[in-house]
Design a protein around this nucleic acid. Structure first.
Length: 443
RNA sequence: GACCCUUUCGUCUAACGGUUAGGACACGUCCCUUUCACGGAUGUAAUACGAGUUCGAUUCUCGUAGGGGUCGCCA
């Protein structure tokens, strides 16, 4: 007896955005298919014509493309079970509907809606994650499967398509557990074997509420817009409801595939932690090669308002390596770029306060500027030597001069690695900024 | 309310019935260092509660409580 090849599907409806929980469901289906050499099907459940727009469809396919979750059959690719849009499968549904009618499983309401007559038998759902779940629908009203206008309801089309598309495993959110009772009744009415079910726990907000469109990070588009690295997001998402069962956290999908078992799946809902997601992003950002980082940064800058000096000249490309190791997200460029490019930026309040508290300030600044002015070859190491010499002359530690130097040149208390930044800035600009701000500070 | 799922640091999670209950994010301290960081070290912090089984329970069973989900002619 041969085991049928694994076929899984992600079946979103076009709601206008791709929910991060949906993305995780897609990811788990994708991982399962890839781990078993199976087929990953994308099917668009667009039976609700009202919200079925091109933009809503694009949010799904763009998001999946961006995450790197390639499907084997579905929109853009076609396949043996095309079409993959439910809105185009009316004839199939009509035929399957007739089967139910002929078998006497249905009855029609006064207004024309058609219901499926439930066998009202207790159902046991053998779930791969939750175990055996008892579902008792005997007290429930019969489900409607067709509206008076002839369009079909989710439960019906979902099951028909899973039969037609030969889906072997259904991996979906826990919010579908109870629906599964209805679905199993339909499979049985069609004389079809239900697929293997695995219901994965949900992703919630940090306050345990359901993530909705408005919540930050609920839409995959948020990560795209903010130039997250897809691999980082995928990595983080994998760890919500799945674990390698050891201490590793940074994992490639190749490393995850052999460990993607039901046994490694979590059973309880997970709260989304944007801080940790950003930490993953920082890990991947730091490892990125310079050209890729430049491309990511520049294309993000070009999408910003003009206020953000989004040039792609060599000055900018020279500055980006200074920033790359400092940030957890590309949007933090907006914090670093001004202090590097705007020499006239005002001195930050806390910087001024901390600097004023330094003893012997006037003398220190003057000695520092004198030594800097004497630097011939303007390199980070030469600047460092000048700072060291100035410190020696003042009989203080070099470190004591770094903070004043940072304030003089950037106006800030913190920022990128200073000496390389000054090398990038150049001697004339450094001296000009320093003398101007020194005057301001010393009054 | 009914039914279903679930319960280990604030969060994500690990722990053949025997561990000083481990790791990571976040937070604190120290070290490193020319600065900001990175990094290293370290600290605060968890088995929801109550019974039972057992020599021994985070682990198995039951109950209680908390959280979530579902109860559509939405998907």
């Amino acid at each position: 007896m041969s085991v049928p090849p694994v076929r899984v599907r992600f079946a979103p409806s076009p709601t206008g955005y791709l929910h991060v929980g949906g993305a995780r469901t897609a990811l788990f289906n994708w991982l399962f298919a890839r781990a078993h050499g199976g087929t990953f099907v994308l099917r668009i459940e667009d039976t609700d014509a009202a919200r079925n727009t091109a933009a809503a469809q694009a949010a799904i396919t763009d998001g999946l493309h961006w995450l790197g979750l390639d499907w084997d059959e579905g929109p853009e690719k076609g396949g043996p079970h095309a079409p993959y849009y439910q809105s185009q499968r009316g004839a199939i549904y009509d035929a399957y509907f007739q089967k139910l009618v002929d078998a006497g499983h249905t009855y029609t309401e006064e207004n024309g809606a058609v219901r499926f007559r439930s066998p009202r038998l207790p159902i046991v759902l053998p779930d791969k994650i939750c175990g055996d779940i008892k579902i008792d629908r005997s007290g429930e009203p019969d489900m409607t499967i067709r509206r008076p206008d002839g369009s079909y309801i989710f439960h019906f089309v979902n099951v028909v398509d899973d039969i037609k598309m030969e889906i072997t495993h259904v991996i979906r959110g826990e919010d579908h557990i109870y629906n599964t009772g209805k679905h199993i009744e339909l499979f049985q009415a069609f004389g079809a074997e239900p697929p293997v079910y695995a219901h994965i726990p949900l992703i919630l907000n940090s306050d345990a509420s359901k993530m909705s469109k408005r919540d930050q990070g609920a839409a995959v588009g948020y990560y795209q817009e903010n130039a997250f690295l897809p691999a980082a997001v995928v990595n983080y998402l994998c760890l919500l409801g799945w674990s390698p069962k050891d201490d590793r956290e940074i994992l490639t999908t190749d490393e995850i595939l052999p460990l993607f078992h039901w046994e490694n799946m979590g059973h309880s809902n997970a709260k989304f932690d944007m801080e940790k997601c950003r930490w993953f992003n920082a890990q991947y950002l730091a490892k990125l090669d310079a050209p890729s980082f430049d491309h990511l940064a520049i294309s993000w800058l070009l999408r910003q308002t003009p206020a953000l000096s989004g040039t792609d000249d060599s000055r900018l490309v020279g500055a980006l390596p200074l920033i790359q190791p400092k940030i957890k997200g590309i949007p933090e460029l907006a914090e670093h770029l001004p202090m590097l490019f705007d020499g006239a930026a005002p001195i930050a309040g806390d910087a001024m306060a901390k600097l004023s508290a330094q003893p012997d300030l006037s003398n220190r600044l003057n000695v520092l500027l004198t030594h800097l002015d004497a630097v011939v070859e303007w390199t980070a190491s030469a600047i460092q030597a000048a700072v060291a010499a100035a410190a020696a002359a003042l009989t203080i530690k070099p470190g004591a001069l770094m903070f004043p130097l940072r304030v003089l040149t950037t106006g800030q208390t913190h920022g990128v690695d200073l000496l390389p930044a000054l090398e990038w800035l150049g001697k004339p600009e450094t001296m000009q900024r320093s003398t101007a701000r020194a005057k301001l500070i010393l009054g």
